[in-house]
Design a protein around this nucleic acid. Structure first.
Length: 622
DNA sequence: TCCGAAAACTTTTTT
DNA sequence: AGTTTTCGGA
């Protein structure tokens, strides 16, 4: 039974701020919501979805389409809506990545693509490397064309090329590229840029499909809107411009750090103009406490002089400095003192190692070499999330479906009565085996199988103390139980051998590493997940995350060569780093590498950020 | 094999 | 802007 809109109350939270409430109830016009760091962007979208679904404003069979860029963002949003709504309602909330959405459209309406550009049904997804593009350009006698430029040209140029490209040489080159990709020896290879162009073309040339899409989705959410590329925006235009579908675009211009990768310069302004959107800015920060928010505001104002002040809703829960610049003489001292500081914080019971994130601007691998030994001396482990195990980064591996399936399964062996692991495993295997929630005998059979398997696993683990060979054995056992063939059938990203092997090898390598000198198997799995490790990552990877304490490593002019007061995006990435902190934000630099950035210091020091001699952050014999 | 110059690279997601 | 890799000539 739908709730009347005026009676609807937010689900699972006490209240919404005034602006969020207004933006939520705006269902007749497009809205553009600026949600700064910690403003509760995902929560806002989940509440708006609940509002639309529960009031019948979006009544069955109509659906909400929510588009995110990253898989985890799409999954988080979907999970929150599932918590807030009935299963029936949540089923009409489609939270999906941009690329998954376009690929579904392509697969569903492939036959509607005009002959000249229609890919074969059995195409594979390509991730063309710079090298691939250079090889193509060389093959076609255009070695002087830059691969970067060409990549963007493919992404930017609308189809059909015969009508949209004026320069005949450029047209011929792009046409040759499409032809080449379709005629690869192992079958057609299509990149997501190409899929985007195909779907945009398909929608432009098929008013009926466009109409059906618009009728299916009267409400569309766009997450992290500041990172939209021109190609994605043109697809949104082709699909929904001047339609009755109502948009809710959410993001923060101050956190735009993907411009170099093709994000639009001014996505919010263009969207506001093209879609006649009403703008709202959320004014609360639920993540950080007041002292940090005050400093954040100083940086925010430098990015955008018109930015409104934000109300801090985080609670201060630490003594002493909450923001400071740490100055060191040498690299050695910098690494050693930071390690000792973390050690003393952990010993003092103020943080766990994984609450302290070390952020860098770039080259996390080099920083790992510098910091890891110093941390090891203090009995701490640094986890560089960008590090490759085999051919995959640890951070990516942890988000892979293979990991999501295998890890809970292994936990069943390593810990007794782990109900979380049991439920997750059951869910995964039910869907892998295609057993429906109504099929009780099927469910029971599967539960018995899982029970038997976990007993076997526990036996193996008891018989075999952790070591790399044992890790291999357990991994093989778990993978065998799940079934490689079934896994690869259900997850299309594993269809090609190279793609599956990359993930499988990465898992095996990391598990083997974690099994070395571990006390027991649950310790191995803890390590695998990064429990009690100090995370190290780039600012870009930290986007969307939060940490109790953030240490930014390398606030020197050398690391930030391109940072100047008027180079917007670099200041944005500094802002992103700062706003990851719930309680404390520290910035380190050392004289050996270069001075701290003068103008940035001048910005931070009057805002109450102290400059501290690195020798003083923790006593030498502490 | 060595040297110096030139070029490349840095920040990344996606089934 | 600085570091690393590649390349050409000896």
């Amino acid at each position: 039974m739908p709730v009347a809109p005026e009676d609807w109350q937010p689900q699972g939270v006490n209240s919404l701020e005034r602006r969020a409430w207004d933006a939520l109830r705006e269902t007749a016009q497009n809205v553009c919501v600026t949600a700064g760091a910690g403003a509760g962007k995902t929560e806002f979208l989940a509440q708006k979805a609940a509002y639309l679904l529960q009031t019948g404003l979006c009544a069955a069979p109509k659906r909400i389409l929510a588009i995110s860029f990253k898989r985890d963002a799409a999954q988080n949003l979907a999970a929150r809506v599932r918590q807030r709504c009935s299963a029936d309602q949540a089923r009409r909330f489609h939270s999906i990545t941009f690329d998954a959405f376009t690929k579904h459209m392509l697969d569903h309406f492939r036959l509607a693509i005009p002959d000249a550009y229609r890919p074969p049904a059995d195409y594979s997804i390509a991730f063309p490397s710079r090298r691939d593009l250079e090889l193509f350009l060389r093959r076609h006698g255009r070695p002087n064309v830059s691969a970067d430029w060409f990549e963007r040209a493919v992404a930017r140029t609308a189809l059909p090329l015969e009508e949209t490209v004026e320069d005949p040489r450029e047209r011929e080159l792009l046409r040759a590229y499409w032809a080449d990709q379709y005629a690869m020896p192992d079958g057609a290879l299509v990149s997501f840029s190409m899929i985007n162009r195909l779907v945009e073309y398909m929608l432009r040339s098929n008013p009926r499909i466009k109409r059906a899409l618009r009728l299916t989705y009267p409400f569309v959410f766009l997450d992290e809107f500041q990172d939209t590329t021109y190609a994605q925006y043109s697809l949104v235009n082709a699909a929904f411009r001047e339609s009755n579908s109502v948009f809710t675009a959410v993001g923060d211009d101050k956190q735009k750090i993907m411009g170099w990768a093709g994000a639009m310069d001014n996505a919010f302004d263009e969207f506001t103009a093209d879609f006649k959107a009403v703008r709202y800015a959320l004014l609360r920060n639920w993540r950080s406490h007041e002292a940090l928010v005050t400093v954040q505001h100083v940086i925010a104002r430098r990015i955008d002089p018109d930015v409104e002040e934000v109300e801090a809703r985080g609670e201060l829960a630490v003594d002493g400095d909450t923001a400071a610049i740490w100055r060191f003489d040498s690299r050695e001292q910098e690494a050693e003192q930071i390690a000792r500081w973390i050690r003393s914080e952990v010993d003092g019971g103020r943080v766990a190692p994984h609450d302290v994130a070390i952020l860098v601007r770039m080259r996390a691998n080099n920083v790992e070499d510098e910091l890891a030994p110093a941390l090891r001396n203090q009995g701490l482990t640094l986890r560089n999330l960008a590090r490759n195990v085999g051919k995959i980064a640890i951070q990516d591996l942890l988000a892979e479906p293979l990991t999501e399936v295998l890890l809970p399964l292994l936990w069943l062996g390593a810990s007794a009565r782990n109900s979380d692991a049991w439920n997750t495993t059951l869910q995964h295997l039910l869907s892998l085996a295609g057993i429906s929630p109504e099929d009780e005998t099927g469910q029971e059979r599967l539960q018995r199988e899982i029970g038997e398997f976990s007993r076997n696993l526990r036996q193996t683990m008891r018989a075999q103390p952790p070591d790399p060979a044992g890790a291999d054995q357990l991994f093989a056992q778990a993978l065998d139980f799940v079934g490689v063939a079934r896994l690869r059938q259900v997850y299309p990203e594993y269809r090609r051998d190279v793609d599956f092997q990359r993930v499988r090898d990465g898992f095996q390598i990391l598990m083997r590493e974690c099994a070395e000198n571990a006390a027991d198997w649950s310790g191995v799995l803890d390590r695998f997940e990064g429990k009690d490790h100090v995370p190290l990552m780039t600012i870009h990877k930290s986007k969307g995350l939060e940490f109790h304490t953030m240490i930014f490593f390398g606030l020197d002019a050398q690391t930030w060569w391109s940072l100047s007061p008027d180079r917007g995006e670099e200041l944005n990435s500094f802002f992103v780093a700062f706003t990851r902190a719930r309680q404390r934000a520290f910035f380190s630099y050392c004289a050996e590498r270069g001075n701290a950035i003068g103008w940035l210091e001048q910005l931070l020091l009057p805002a109450g950020v102290g400059k501290i001699d690195g020798a003083d952050i923790v006593a030498p014999d502490a």
